[in-house]
């Protein structure tokens, strides 16, 4: 039978759900071992963060698409958390190979890393479900305009999690490497997010990028202080 957009979308959703069936809502034993190997166990901090971000996400989701969809928002978040754990595990495995270490205490206690990774996982879930079809509007790729209407298209998730585009950008490439089952369309979507950040969002007033560039120019002075994130 001929492939239709609906059939293609259904197949993508089935694939995503299928891939995540075995992942579970809790960290796997491998992931839990990585947490235990940390100097400071990140587990409690992660659970608290997930709870807080879950509430924020569900609230903003139902505000955007209507209170009838609050359950759907929660379902999307749950799928996002599964993908977040799955990708985190793969990232840590490849970092263990690369660095020959098992203690990732600094990374796993970095709130920005977790928020960026979860935001990317949720963006994949939302793009798979074609969440933008909930409402018209958002970023118009054809003419680069933005409408005032709120919807769930990228960069919506950055606003929900108060996340700097610059930090979201950092996880995209590693995310794609860690999750080889992502469909071509989703990879293309993440590339679109990447391009949007690089060409537009990262250069908005107040972007952390300007401060980082300033530090880079100041060079020596910045190095004398406690080494800032370069």
């Amino acid at each position: 039978p001929p492939q239709t957009p609906i059939k293609a979308a259904m197949a993508s959703i089935q694939q995503l759900r299928g891939d995540l069936v075995s992942s579970g809502d809790q960290p796997s034993t491998t992931l839990a071992t990585y947490f235990k190997n940390c100097t400071i166990d990140p587990t409690q901090g992660m659970l608290k963060r997930l709870e807080m971000l879950g509430q924020t996400f569900s609230q903003r989701f139902s505000q955007a698409v209507g209170p009838r969809f609050i359950i759907i928002g929660k379902q999307r978040f749950t799928l996002g958390v599964r993908l977040y754990y799955k990708v985190m595990e793969e990232m840590l495995k490849s970092e263990e190979k690369r660095l020959s270490v098992q203690n990732f205490s600094k990374l796993l206690n970095d709130s920005t890393f977790h928020t960026s990774l979860l935001a990317c996982a949720l963006e994949v879930v939302m793009a798979t479900y074609g969440e933008s079809s909930f409402k018209a509007g958002g970023y118009n790729q054809a003419n680069g305009s933005e409408t005032a209407e709120t919807d769930l298209c990228f960069p919506w998730i950055l606003d929900v999690f108060s996340l700097a585009a610059f930090d979201f950008y950092k996880v995209i490439e590693s995310f794609i490497k860690a999750e080889p089952t992502l469909s071509k369309d989703i990879v293309k979507h993440l590339e679109t997010c990447e391009n949007l950040i690089m060409e537009k969002i990262a250069w908005r007033t107040g972007s952390v990028l300007f401060e980082l560039l300033k530090q880079e120019h100041e060079g020596g002075a910045a190095e004398q202080a406690e080494a800032p994130a370069s």
Binding site: L107, K170, K184, A229
Partner: peptide, 21 residues
Amino acid sequence: SHDYHFGLEDHEGISELFDCE
């Protein structure tokens, strides 16, 4: 299997990008 261009040539892993190596 996809056409993504891995462009961050300087970085080798996520720890480095978050300054956590």
